[in-house]
Simulated assay, not measured.
Amino acid sequence: MQFRDSGLSIERAEEQRLLRAQVTSVEQLLELNKRELLRLPGIGEGSSSRILAALANAGLSLAEDPYAANECAREAKAARDAELRSYFLCDSCRDAYAQQAFGDRSPEWVSSERVEGYCCHCNELRTVRLSQWFLCGTCDRVVRSLGRGLASAKFVASSWADTFGSAPELSLRETDPVELRPRGRRSDVDRVATVDFVADDAAGETVLGVELKSGRSALPGGGIGKPMSTFQLDTTDCDDITTAAAALNVPVFLVHAQIIGRAHAPTERYEGVGLWFASPWEMPQHLKEVRSRPRERRDAAYFKTAVFRPFAEFPAYVKHAFPEDLESMRRDGFPFLYRS
Rank of each mutant, 00 (worst) to 15 (best):
M1H: 11
M1V: 01
Q2C: 03
R4A: 03
I10H: 04
I10G: 00
A13C: 14
Q16M: 13
L19S: 02
T24F: 00
S25R: 04
V26Q: 04
Q28S: 12
L32G: 04
R35Y: 13
E36I: 00
E36P: 02
L40S: 15
L40G: 10
S47V: 01
S48Y: 13
S48I: 04
I51G: 07
L52C: 09
L55V: 06
L60I: 05
S61I: 14
A69T: 07
C72Q: 05
R74Y: 01
A78E: 11
A79L: 12
D81C: 04
A82S: 10
L84F: 13
R85M: 14
D91Q: 15
R94N: 04
R94V: 09
D95C: 03
Y97W: 09
D104M: 15
S111Y: 02
E113G: 02
R114I: 13
C119N: 01
C120E: 14
H121W: 07
N123H: 10
E124F: 10
L125A: 07
R126D: 09
R126T: 03
V128I: 09
R129I: 07
R129D: 01
R129T: 07
L130P: 02
W133V: 06
W133I: 09
F134V: 03
C136T: 07
C139E: 07
D140K: 04
V142C: 10
V143T: 14
L146D: 09
L150Q: 08
K154I: 08
F155R: 06
F155A: 05
G165R: 15
G165C: 10
A167C: 15
P168E: 00
E179L: 14
R181K: 15
R181I: 02
G184L: 10
D190A: 06
A193D: 13
F197R: 13
V198M: 04
V198P: 00
T206R: 15
G209E: 02
L212N: 11
L212G: 03
R216C: 01
S217H: 10
G221F: 11
M228C: 09
T230M: 10
F231H: 08
T236R: 11
T236P: 13
T236C: 12
T242S: 15
L248S: 01
N249G: 08
P251D: 05
P251A: 02
L254N: 01
H256M: 11
Q258C: 01
I260L: 04
Y270H: 11
V273R: 07
W276V: 00
M283V: 06
P284K: 00
H286D: 05
L287C: 03
P294G: 09
A300I: 04
A300F: 11
A301L: 11
A301F: 11
K304W: 05
A306S: 13
F308N: 01
F308E: 00
P310I: 12
F311L: 07
F311H: 03
A316C: 06
Y317K: 08
K319C: 04
F322N: 08
F322A: 12
E324Q: 14
S328Q: 03
M329D: 01
R331H: 09
R331W: 11
D332F: 09
F334V: 00
F334W: 06
F336W: 10
L337G: 06
Y338G: 05
S340V: 15
